[in-house]
């Protein structure tokens, strides 16, 4: 098991999680491989700071390609390499922009191939019905399809924001029976547990 896919609704914090998790694991620079829906593959090297500036943004659907970074995790006396792949955010409705729809189709294709799925949910928006990152039908469907795999965990992100604690409680009720890690991708909280989980699956 080597491919770890990061999925979730748009603006759930997927790209920031991938970059900060890579930094947490000791990387200052990342070689990102961009795989675009049209088949184009591109490799770019970023410092983590630069990647955060360029790839993380307030506009939904900033990520429109599969963005993969390889990370080495200590396992036993050696290290094991795995690939973290950031994806274009999912939504509950049909997007008007064909480019976005194409990127979403690419994400769906990646979901069927992935060994391990980390599903990011905005914990602070779980109970907020009008928030774009509120728990939606697409989250329920991801949970259902992902549990058919060997590895699946929900990362309840944005635990640093107000309302996240009560959101986490609701999330446990809404998506019961899954492994769930409260994290803050921004402040790198909860990363130790996520690392242990990924390490465990790599062993």
């Amino acid at each position: 098991m080597r491919d770890c896919l990061i999925v979730g609704k748009t603006h759930a914090g997927k790209t920031l999680f991938v970059l900060n998790f890579a930094q947490y694991l000791g990387l200052d620079n990342v070689d990102l491989i961009f795989k675009y829906p049209n088949g184009l593959i591109e490799k770019k090297t970023y410092s983590i700071a630069k990647a955060r500036r360029e790839l993380v943004g307030p506009i939904p659907h900033t990520t429109r390609a599969l963005q993969t970074v390889s990370i080495d995790l200590p396992v036993g006396k050696g290290v094991k390499r795995c690939f973290l792949t950031d994806t274009s955010g999912l939504i509950d409705h049909i997007h008007s922009d064909v480019e976005v729809r194409r990127a979403i189709a690419q994400t769906l294709g990646a979901i069927r191939e992935a060994d391990l799925i980390l599903h990011l949910v905005d914990a602070a928006a779980v109970g907020v019905s009008d928030a774009p990152t509120a728990l939606g039908e697409v989250d329920y469907q991801v949970a259902q399809i992902a549990q058919m795999r060997g590895g699946y965990a929900i990362l309840a992100n944005k635990m640093d924001l107000p309302g996240a604690v009560s959101g986490l409680a609701k999330l446990k009720l809404e998506l019961p029976g899954h492994r769930l890690f409260p994290i803050s991708a921004l402040y790198k909280r909860g990363f130790r547990e996520v690392k242990s989980y990924v390490q465990h699956l790599l062993c």
């Binding site: 509950d92 049909i94 729809r101 769906l108 039908e137 329920y140 469907q141």
Partner: peptide, 11 residues
């Protein structure tokens, strides 16, 4: 991609 299926329905 064609906009004939929502992502939840696709999943």
């Amino acid at each position: 991609e064609k906009g004939e299926l929502t992502p939840p329905a696709a999943l």
